[in-house]
Design a protein around this nucleic acid. Structure first.
Lengths: 110, 110
DNA sequence: AGAATCCATTGACGTTCGTCAATGGGTCTG
DNA sequence: CAGACCCATTGACGAACGTCAATGGATTCT
């Protein structure tokens, strides 16, 4: 492997390509996906043909109902998902106006 | 929007497509990338033609040297990067044997 | 040898996170 | 109306995180 030649006391700060705002935004998205439960939920919704009822997730994972609700809130705050209530049910889907960047990352997983 | 018909007391736990181990693994990767500083470092290394000296990162970000070191350790533990020491310098690059999954996610960003 | 440079580790601190139990609100059924 | 069902919120707790100051090891220059 070829390593660059360096001189003591002289650093070469790399120019950061992405805008700070964009970095922060992407970081928030990754944080939302960086929990195993939320990741599985997000992938479920990505692959689902219809909106999914929260009760199905509550029945799937080995965590309490409030915790599932908490995870959904995180996904909502990240702008990743979208709720529609009907009767006693809450149906979730991937946000229809997901940014291209977010969609690309989501598609790169699994 | 068309919502599924549901029946009270009957849930339809979705079948999870990804293996639990794979989910955990991806989650760890995302966690490593989910910090703004680490994200910028990872993108830098992804786009760099040569290994990058840590002193350059220390000169770039508004955080202390130990914190930069700490972030590099996280990226190392995640298997994302790779160090080579030469003299007083430590050069980092993207791990040469990065999984296809990790590479795909990294390429989907920015 | 002594000083300077680069970098990792340790210890500490406040913040955020993942989780649960308890509670409450909303909706449907009997 | 009374009960069952679904779901969000609140409050609490331990664990993990991001950060820094201080320290120490290793290397190189003078």
């Amino acid at each position: 492997m070829v390593l660059p030649e360096r001189e003591r006391g002289v650093c070469c700060p790399p120019t950061l390509k992405a805008r700070p705002q964009k970095v922060e935004q992407t970081s928030e998205l990754l944080k939302a996906l960086a929990d195993p439960t939320r990741l599985q939920i997000a992938l479920c919704l990505r692959d689902a043909k219809e909106p999914v009822c929260i009760c199905d997730f509550t029945a799937t994972f080995d965590i309490s109902q409030p915790t599932v609700s908490h995870h959904m809130a995180k996904l909502r705050e990240a702008g990743l998902v979208d709720v529609t209530k009907q009767g006693i049910w809450s149906f979730y889907r991937l946000s229809p106006d997901l940014s291209a960047a977010a969609r690309r990352i989501l598609d790169a997983i699994g």
